[in-house]
Nucleic acid binder design. Sequence first.
DNA 1: GCATAGTGTAAATTATCGGATTACAGTTTC
DNA 2: GAAACTGTAATCCGATAATTTACACTATGC
Lengths: 94, 94
Amino acid sequence: MNTMHPGELLREDVVPGLGIKIAPLARMLGVSRQHLHAILREEAPVSASLALKLGKLCGNGPTLWLNLQRDHDLQKLAVEMKDELDAIPTVRVA
Amino acid sequence: MNTMHPGELLREDVVPGLGIKIAPLARMLGVSRQHLHAILREEAPVSASLALKLGKLCGNGPTLWLNLQRDHDLQKLAVEMKDELDAIPTVRVA
DNA sequence: GCATAGTGTAAATTATCGGATTACAGTTTC
DNA sequence: GAAACTGTAATCCGATAATTTACACTATGC
């Protein structure tokens, strides 16, 4: 399972690859400059709507971005919810 | 792309397959009876935390549920954001 | 030199939304 | 016919995605 935050991919690969500054990129994506920075710092998540925009911009569709974000969230959540999850039995379907 | 709401799968297959009533199922999942009903009515989404719980209960992991929900959300969002997305160019990476 | 523009971060604020709680009408069951 | 259960609707609450406002720092130009 890949646990990289999508901000890492954005910061390491996409932004350098595009050769474009953060501020204009944020404008192209219809997002505030500050918010894009927060994502690059891996402090804010890539939402579904931003994933659609990134998918359009890169021509790769939104799935890549959402999968990264989802795996990242799931891993954190699974730890937080460990006790709660352990209390749930696995039931065999009839 | 599968656009079924996870509530449909839950309602049509899982609940009948388990042969269990809604109220006790909600209790097993640590969710209110009303909220589970809302999901079965396809009015509430399956969140990441509920997907983890369902995955544990069914023994299949959370991914199935999250993929269903994500595809469902994306399809709706893409329609709502059509104009905004059309305004974003697809950029070739260097 | 300094003033203007741009970059990165840090609040504070707003809007949305997942979910619980409360409440109510209709069914069953004793 | 009252107690227990089911399904739905309405209200409320906490978390959070995102904007706005603000501030230090770095160029870059005149």
